[in-house]
Design a protein around this nucleic acid. Structure first.
Length: 113
DNA sequence: CGATTGACCGAAG
DNA sequence: CCTTCGGCCAATC
């Protein structure tokens, strides 16, 4: 509880870590929650560094379209899809079915900064 | 310190 | 509908 914001990553990780089981969120939503808003790419960048962090369920983070954009970065070919389906989420054509229903908005669920 | 990039988003052609 | 472009911000080369 002191070096929380060593970098932008830690802040992203913190939000992703709070994503409940069986839920998904988007990069833009996290970015907006952090206040960066227009820098959703930074969130994706942070995920690039999330390799090795088991506390950061990157598979629960998709783009605003509900498409598993980062699935290509996961080991294997369909690990991300399997992880999501393992949580009860249905994936079809690399896309989350009923994304709106599984969507978890940090701004809506988490308290404001 | 300058230039590049990156798992995005949104708009425009 | 699909492709292209710009922006925005931080980390990396």
């Amino acid at each position: 509880m002191k070096d929380n914001h060593e970098g932008f990553f830690e802040r992203v990780y913190e939000v992703v870590r709070q994503v409940p089981y069986g839920r998904v969120t988007s990069y833009g939503a996290i970015a907006r929650y952090l206040g960066t808003g227009r820098s959703a790419r930074l969130v994706g960048w942070a995920m690039n560094s999330c390799h090795g962090l088991d506390d950061v369920p990157a598979h629960r983070v998709v783009n605003r379209n509900g498409v598993l954009t980062g699935k290509h970065h996961f080991p294997g070919s369909r690990l991300m899809e399997q992880l999501l389906e393992n949580e009860g989420i249905v994936i079809r054509d690399d896309q989350v079915v009923d994304f709106n229903r599984h969507y978890w908005d940090p701004m809506r669920e988490l308290p404001p900064l």
